[in-house]
């Protein structure tokens, strides 16, 4: 059995108080929301923060205004029918029921990057020798690489990026707002542009027609090995974002440029699929065959754009995801 390392637990009641604790304790302190990502990582000793600052007792983290509180659980997102469909489809496909009841949207956006050689317990990692991302000097996936290529595995980030979401970050010194696409680095270790003293408090979204398609081995439950989000913005532009094929989720500029002002005909969809597939660069550190994952990204773009166009994709969705949403 893997046990948690010792840590001190703080349960502030306001965002201001949480920000002050972070500012005072420095990088020794980490935020915990649902803990569904952080606690397993701590058990495997990927991190051992001295202090955990819980966000669960802060009512402002769940606020129901025009913005979504970062502390909203994934289950709550699925049940809020007024939210964009793409976000709800993404939240619905994260992990399993229990984990969605605990896991939050903020935690999902800040999810640690993943890799088969990293998401293992301490003894296993020690046995093959540690890797760059934690305690080591080499990358087991790309042995010549100086950079960790662990994969961004958040489902909600591409869905939110496609609809143009912005996130608010608050620290003791003030706050700032950034577009979600500017929140990530393509680096498996330093994957967020968030400073250690910042709290992601809310996510600002506009309603727009959107959808999310996720590739994984089992429709019922698995981390993504490809996520395709597509949305029609209020100005009529179509945006595609990809997840799980790089160390960050990203907008596919080349395809989005091409789609500008176009009607979603079969030919346009096919060309968009080709353009997206050329940008998908999965690494051999996750499930399923690497080349196959790249190849089918065009097909998944096709599913997403067809659904966006209004085609009835329910049968395909049920076959692939096992969920009807």
């Amino acid at each position: 059995m893997m046990r948690l390392p010792w840590f001190e637990y703080r349960a502030p009641r306001s965002i201001g108080e949480a920000a002050r604790i972070l500012a005072g304790e420095g990088p020794e302190a980490m935020l915990i929301a649902g803990g569904t990502d952080l606690l397993p990582n701590m058990k495997r000793r990927q991190m051992a923060p001295k202090i955990l600052v819980s966000l669960r007792h802060i009512p402002e983290m769940k606020r129901n205004g025009s913005a979504l509180g970062a502390g909203t659980t994934l289950t709550e997102i699925v049940t809020k029918t007024e939210l964009p469909l793409g976000l709800r489809q993404a939240a619905h496909q994260v992990a399993t029921v229990h984990l969605r009841n605990m896991g939050t949207l903020g935690g999902n956006l800040c999810l640690d990057t993943r890799c088969n050689y990293y998401n293992q317990n301490y003894e296993w990692r020690k046995a093959i020798d540690f890797c760059l991302k934690k305690d080591g000097a080499i990358c087991w996936v790309a042995t010549a690489s100086k950079r960790c290529v662990a994969m961004s595995s958040t489902d909600c980030a591409p869905a939110l990026m496609a609809i143009g979401a912005r996130v608010k970050l608050v620290s003791a010194g003030g706050g700032r707002e950034v577009a979600l696409e500017d929140f990530y680095n393509n680096d498996g270790i330093d994957y967020l542009k968030r400073r250690p003293d910042e709290i992601l408090t809310e996510i600002k979204i506009e309603s727009s027609a959107s959808c999310y398609w996720k590739l994984r081995r089992r429709g019922a439950f698995d981390f993504p090995v490809l996520g395709v989000a597509a949305a029609i913005r209020s100005d009529g532009d179509i945006r595609i974002a990809l997840g799980a094929v790089a160390s960050r989720p990203f907008l596919v500029d080349k395809a989005n440029e091409f789609l500008k002002g176009k009607k979603l005909t079969d030919e346009v969809i096919e060309e968009a699929g080709r353009l997206v597939a050329s940008r998908a660069k999965p690494m051999d550190n996750a499930d399923l065959d690497l080349y196959w994952r790249k190849e089918v990204s065009a097909d998944f773009v096709g599913y997403a754009l067809r659904e966006l166009r209004g085609d009835d994709m329910r049968a395909t969705r049920l076959r692939i995801t096992r969920y009807a949403l």
Partner: peptide, 11 residues
């Protein structure tokens, strides 16, 4: 580990 060694779930 059993997270990556997959078998079917009830769903």
């Amino acid at each position: 580990s059993l997270l990556e060694y997959k078998s079917l779930t009830s769903l």
